[in-house]
Every structure is written in C-alpha cells, then in structure tokens.
Design a protein around this nucleic acid. Structure first.
Lengths: 253, 253
DNA sequence: CGAAAATTTGACGACTCTCAAGTCGAGTGG
DNA sequence: CCACTCGACTTGAGAGTCGTCAAATTTTCG
C-alpha cells in the first residue's frame, strides 16, 4: 500500500510514521488512531497553536502544512525543530503535561487533535501502539540531537543546506517532495530563526548557496540541482530519521 | 523522605526522577524499578558504553559518575547532552532499538542495566510507571531543545556558563551539589566538545569567566561565587528541567 | 626525573553581527 | 493604468567572535 492509498483510507492520520514504522502498524491500529482524532481545524500563517507553559489536554496531528517548534529568549524567536504532515507534533505534552516550547504555524495549516484521555487508554490497552507513540517522540529527540551537532559544527550556509536536505527527505517520506526540490511556506526570516542567524546573514547565506549552484531558494520554492551535492555540503545523513538506513528498526539482528 | 534516604533504600535507582516526578512514584513502583536493574558495573574515563548503531537490548541507569551523549562527524566528537546520577541514560533505545548516538563515560562511572524485556512488561502491566519512563525521555528532549536555543543564541563563554548552571542544578536535584559549586570529571576538551568550540577557544572562554568572577573552573573543581549572576550571564532558567517551576507537572490546573 | 597529557598564550584570517540604506513585488486607491 | 505602500528581500561597511597554526607552560604520573 503506497502512502497515497493510506491517505485515502486514513485522511487525517495516513501519513503518521510513513517511511518509518508505519509498516509495523496493523490495520486495526491505523483505524483506531484515525478514530481517535477529532475534527479538522485550520489556521493561518503565524498562528501560535500552543504557547510554552500552556496545560495541554490534547495532542496534535499535523495533517497539512508546516509547523515550527520555537522558544523565545530576549525578544527573539528560535526554531528548535520543524514539522511536516504526518507528524504527531506535540505528543510530548502527553507525558510532560505542560509544553516547554511553542508550536507555531507557518503558512496555512490543517490539524486534527487527540484528547489525552484517549492516549491514556491506549497506554493501558494497546502497548504496541503506545510503543509506536513513544517511538515517534524519540524520533523528534534524535532529530534534536542531530541538529545540536550540526549547530556546533556548521556555518550558516551549511546549516541551511542541512535544513533543506532534511525538509526534502521528510517531505518525500510522506510523498510531498518533488523530483527537483520542494515547496515550503518558510520565509527567510523563519529560516533565520531556525538556524540561529540574523535574517541579513541568512539572506547572504542563501545567496551563497545560489551562487554555488547548491540550492535556489526563491520565496518558498526550493530547487536543488544535485541532491548528493546538497547533502554533502550540509553534512546531511538521513540515518537519524530512522527510515531505511543504518539505524532502521529491524527486528532481525 | 529525603533523597539520601531514598539512596539507602534504593541504592541503584534512588535518584531516578529525584526533584521531578519521584514524588509521584509509589513505594511499590520504586521497589519494582530497583528490582529490575541488574548488577552494578563500573567503567573508567573515556569508555564508550554504547556506540551509535549498536542494537540495544537493555537500558542503563547511571548510578555514580558522569556521562556524555555524543555524535561524531568529520573526526570530531560533539556533545549533545550530559548525564548525572539518577538519569535513565538510554531509555531511548527501548523505543528506537538502535541508538543514533554514543554514550561515553567521563571519569569513573558506575551503572546498572535493565533488560528491555522487563521494560516491555512494564509497558503491558504498569501504565503509570511506563508513563514516568516516557516522561523521563521527554525531559531529555526538553533539555535538547533548550540547548538548541542556547547554541543559536549564545557565545562560547555564555554557553559554558549555561552548562555550569545546568550541571549544578541537576547535581543539586540528586543532592550532589555543593553550596558554592560542584565537582565534575570534565576536562576542558570535554567542555569544548559540549559547546562546539575548539579547546583553545574554550580555554579563553573559561579565562573570561574567571576574570569576570562568574565561575572558576580548575581541573574539575567549579567554584561559583554568585549563582544568580552565573544564571543571568548564561541566560539559564531551570524551567525545562521540570522541577518546581513554571512548567512543573501539577495535576491541579 | 622524564614523558605524556592538559592547559595557556599569540597572531592572523574567516564568519557573523549590527547599523544603515536601498531594491523588489504584490496589493490598493486614484 | 499608475503612483503608493508595505513587507520581504538585498547590499555595504565596520566591529566582535571564533578557528587555525604554532608554540610555550603547567600538571600528572610512571
């Protein structure tokens, strides 16, 4: 079953763990997950779905669009991670109760939410599904770690190359990438927040990537002539995404 | 019951979640956790307990000492987080199967391990304890996020101030801090790995902190004259540790 | 004591920030 | 249709932070 079929059958949750452990979910589990989520909600660019410190009684499945996890300090916003459709964005707060960070929409966004009481039931009665939920939050943690290393290692142009490479791969996992790049609602200022640079420096870094022929970012249209070159420049390896790579979840060894 | 009493009664796991949700654990749960862990093992400085990509069949409780989570890239080691006694260091790999990062000992280290089969039983039969385990891994993720923001925001001296502030607080939570600072097996090169700077620059940053009277690091002895000043300089707030602060897990609101 | 490891210092160039200004594109009112 | 406007993007100059290369000093330990 391809991801497109999954979306037809499970319109709100069909992308959850696609390319990762979705193949490990039974149809019963997929159906149960789909039945847990509430009705579709939509938000516009810049909407802050959850603010740091809010008590959460439900968690959010991102159905369409793009979201940023952010933290604020001294009047500046810092991106700590991003989300694409199929991500169970704030499952964390089931365990944490209060979120330590904000969840911001970038561009038009469609979500569906799951009450925590339903997740608590899953914890009691569906240990396998519960373990997949846990896995999903651990994926976020692994991505955080990779990003920490890259922040410690890379200059701004390479950070951006890494971000582009990761967005592209993750969009592809949920069948939303193109052969030669991807589209994103991110603006230069958002990219700046994500890589911890000023928007001025980010602009120069993007010009760098364009001049080098590595990536051409023009108002959300990202064209990448040579994927291998982009990934090499940004020091990107997809292992931490736990798809079909060196770290993939295989039970046979 | 103070943390010291807990250590007498539960010598291997008595510091788990101390200062956080330990108060939410029943004596039965504490006893069960203590019974799950195997015998004490010790390792010396620099020992790599788990290497990226290893298949893990057990997880590690850090009993005494200090550990770093690290990633390697282009022949350099990067610290992504650190661990103090009481941390369930690699509970992540119960969900991930293969760890994306290394677990390195710093200085002499004492651990005890729990087989994953035992954790799977907990998932089936003890949903509350399972949720605490999940919480513990989410704490790590929250600390990752805070560190991402600080890497994006701070210069090297301030990063080090932040690291010192966090180590001190976390040691205090498990009653291992002193009134005027703390001891750590970390060397300057380890600190450099942790903040993504060269050891030369780290050395200058430490000299800065010493000259400013903010923190005096001398071969693992860290003396801090004024905690408030250290925390202000490093932009440190303890909220993301989920102790008794703005984000603490309270069921009453 | 002697060797290895850890720490410290100096000089110079690259990366990034700040302040300041200028350009481009989409939508609006005349 | 065109001038206007606002937000997004682009460019320039000077200063601070940090990396690299090279070397010296101090500490640890056999």
């Amino acid at each position: 079953m391809t991801s497109s079929d999954e979306i037809v059958q499970y319109p709100k949750t069909g992308r959850f763990l696609a390319g990762r452990l979705r193949h490990d979910m039974s149809e019963g589990e997929k159906a149960e997950l789909e039945s847990l989520v509430g009705e579709i909600q939509t938000f516009g660019d810049g909407h802050r779905l959850i603010a740091r410190g809010d008590v959460c009684n439900c968690s959010t499945m991102l159905v369409e669009g793009f979201m940023l996890r952010t933290l604020e300090s001294e009047d500046r916003r810092y991106g700590v991670s991003f989300h694409v459709p199929g991500d169970f964005v704030d499952l964390h707060c089931f365990a944490l109760k209060r979120l330590d960070h904000n969840i911001d929409c970038v561009g038009p966004t469609t979500i569906a939410q799951v009450p925590h009481s339903a997740i608590a039931e899953i914890m009691k009665n569906r240990p396998h599904l519960a373990r997949l939920f846990w896995f999903s939050t651990m994926l976020d943690a692994a991505m955080h770690r990779e990003w920490i290393m890259k922040l410690e290692q890379l200059t701004a142009p390479k950070r951006i190359a890494h971000i582009f490479a990761e967005i592209w791969r993750r969009l592809e996992m949920v069948e939303l990438g193109f052969a030669d790049g991807f589209e994103t609602p991110l603006r230069q200022a958002d990219l700046a927040d994500m890589c911890g640079a000023t928007s001025i420096h980010t602009n120069r870094a993007l010009a760098d990537l364009r001049n080098k022929g590595i990536a051409d970012f023009q108002r959300g249209e990202v064209r990448i002539p040579d994927r291998e070159r982009l990934e090499r420049y940004g020091g990107f390896t997809p292992d931490h995404l736990y798809g079909d790579g060196a770290l993939s979840f295989r039970l046979d060894d």
